[in-house]
Amino acid sequence: MKVTINGRLIEAKEGQTILQVALANGMYIPHLCYHDKVGAAGKCRACVVEVEGMRGLQTSCSVQLRDGMVINTDSETVKNAQKLVIDLMLSSGKHDCLSCEQNGNCELQDAAYFLGIERASVQYGDINRETDESSEFVYVERDKCISCGRCVEACNNVVVNEVINFGNRGHHTEIVFDTDLPMGQSTCVQCGECSQLCPVGAIVDKKNKGVARYWETQKVRTTCPYCGVGCQLELHVKGEQIVKVTGVEDAEPNKGRLCVKGRYGYDFIYSKDRLTTPLIKENGQFREASWEEALGLIREKFGKIIEESGPDAVAGVSCARSINEDSYSMQKLFRSVFKTNNIDHCART
């Protein structure tokens, strides 16, 4: 079907919403509660647009396109309505960007920038919602929450951990964990899906707080080093330091989802305990050695054993955590150099 958005004739598919098609065609509409993963909520009302023949403004995240629909996303009426929504959000929270983790990656900031809002026109005086630092890996600053509900939806219907919900009513509405417990004492498993989907700086990862601005980091896709699901990670890297990990949205097999180990378990590689040099045991003590010396000793000892007792007197165990290319190389060493098939790994543990 064909629809017209801001005068442009655009091809669209059955079931798509105005917002999806506008975004796919490079036309930004502010939106805060909508995310591909959690779907339309029609809640924040930042995405309102005009649709010819429909009365009043429509939330573009929830209106499905019909053939021939004519839509305006940039009229004065629309912009004014969007501005009011964003202005009120800015007014009702502590959206101080200077040291906010989300600065540069904040969807509220993007919306304000797009609409040319310099600062909130009013500021409520009574905002003093509880900041929750009780969780090991997740930091919750409720003063920055815009009650978009993405985290609630994600926790309950994406990862189905069923911990986060809205508590209280009206002006006092806020996110709560289980029966309003501190996050760290709740049944939260710290998968961090809420942090990944939070459009503002209300739910952020503790590990990278104050470590790097969003724009200072390079994003590198890789595969998780833990279980056999093979989740796709985006490493946010500053220099050689991983400062944050997010799931790659739309990637197979994890579609952006991660668990606590995948998202927060990355920093073992920086541990001061790492082995940094070859070591040779002498009189029961290890001493540092060069590669040449260590490999020379292996040549001597393995060579002698093979000469005396045959190739099957040596055996090797490969690693189920290292890359394919390493396991291939190890078995190639045992098979083609040592001439034994005594090679295995812990496939069964």
Binding site: T223, C224, P225, Y226, C227, G228, V229, G230, V317, S318, C319, A320, R321, S322, I323, N324, E325, S327, Y328, M330, Q331, R335, N341, N342, I343, D344, H345, C346, A347, T349
Partner: peptide
């Protein structure tokens, strides 16, 4: 469901006797 990130790969790559 395999327990380790590359236990499938270690099998595929012939870290098997």
């Amino acid at each position: 469901l395999r327990g380790q990130n590359n236990v499938q790969g270690a099998c595929d790559m012939a870290a098997l006797p």
